[in-house]
Nucleic acid binder design. Sequence first.
DNA 1: AGGTTAATTAACCACATAGTTAAATAAAGC
DNA 2: GCTTTATTTAACTATGTGGTTAATTAACCT
Lengths: 121, 121
Amino acid sequence: MRDEDKLDLIFGALANKTRRAILARLAEGEATVNELAEPFLNAPEDEKMSLPAISKHIKVLKRAGLIIRGQNAQYRPCSLNVAPLVAVSEWTEQYRHIWETSFDRMDTYINQLNLKEDDNE
Amino acid sequence: MRDEDKLDLIFGALANKTRRAILARLAEGEATVNELAEPFLNAPEDEKMSLPAISKHIKVLKRAGLIIRGQNAQYRPCSLNVAPLVAVSEWTEQYRHIWETSFDRMDTYINQLNLKEDDNE
DNA sequence: AGGTTAATTAACCACATAGTTAAATAAAGC
DNA sequence: GCTTTATTTAACTATGTGGTTAATTAACCT
């Protein structure tokens, strides 16, 4: 698979709040699926989620290379792999000169305006 | 919409090679839909794409706030808005200390191994 | 008014995501 | 061997993505 195409999987994996939360948790150290799921099992109604749902999210993260699975008895702990995040960082770097050169604050302003308009469409 | 949820749209918009190519083109200056579509209309078989396809991609990019539309006669030029890219950059920054502290090269190595294994699954 | 150009929308298809509940697998511990 | 614990898979539903071709809208130019 080409590097360019890996970015599809990586960005796709990051395009979900639950998965980003899982990564944030893994940044503090490896965890089992149950540990990762725990905060979602007993969560406010609108954020509640089942174990298989988390299991699927983990699959997506693994496919993107963002996590590595271990094996320890019946536990299959997840740990964060930062390499794809480095790839994302490098990708965004190519645009840095644009927002550092000139219309930084103005762009931000227009963007906020723009998102508000979108809400009415 | 919360900032956290905007990231869903932003990462989702970036999770596609065609859309990233459109952004790369826009980094060089504003362009009309036809101008953006041109390289895809006459492309090698496997990359060929129609105008409406590009139009849809632009819609996704606009929803994520990555492009701003102008209006000039029947032209509706697109221009890049970097604010969401700044948001992505800031999001990845929170992980930088992890890959800068220790197992940088090792993580990368494991990741590559990992992706190869995935191909066989 | 009629035609050209730019761009979007409609209607459709195939497939992926995101979730559910229920069943299956795998290893551990009596 | 049977039960418990950890995790995944199956089967299903609803919705989003990514593409197509054909039709529509919008503004310009004679």
